[in-house]
Amino acid sequence: MNQPTPWAAAIHGLFRSHGVSIVSHVPDAGHQRLIELCQADPAIRTVTLTTEEEGIALAAGSFLGGARAALLIQSSGVGNCINMLSLPHVCRMPLVMLVTMRGEWGEFNPWQVPMGASTPAVLEASGVTVFRVDAADDVAATVDGAMSLAWQSRRRVAVLLSQRLLGAKRFTPDPR
């Protein structure tokens, strides 16, 4: 599924200007373009994960080593991160998560709804400051400010990229 995500280039540019050198991800269609931009960028090491919590631990190790990392996941993976979020929380490390939302506006798949609905509460209960973006024009400023907060004040931040922004995934059965 190729969704038009014109803001992906803006986020990639912010990764460059903020000096992000490690980007890890569990793929999501909404992050497809951004992942491709990162993979094509020799200044960024792009790491594919088997589960989202690996990315929390990877970001912690990257911070210890003096580098900035970002994690790209979808809302269904936020629940996988809960205990691992205690690591950056208790060690007061910065963490940047960009979360594409499922289970909300226009959702076709009911199995996505519970985790989508609990995503902001789960993140906030785990010590993560949550920002939400519904309009393409707001993506760059929100991500820029969230990343500045993370690095400068050593906070865990998540930017939720809403399903309204991304466009709901369309499911159509293949013709028999």
């Binding site: 631990a57 990877l58 190790g61 210890l64 080593g65 205990n83 691992m84 690591l87």
Partner: peptide, 22 residues
């Protein structure tokens, strides 16, 4: 040394982050 007191299952990935950045 970076001893963990929690984050069970994450030690190898913390190591990967350190290894990639150092």
């Amino acid at each position: 040394d970076f001893p963990l007191w929690g984050a069970m299952g994450g030690a190898a990935m913390v190591g990967l982050g350190l290894a990639l950045t150092q």
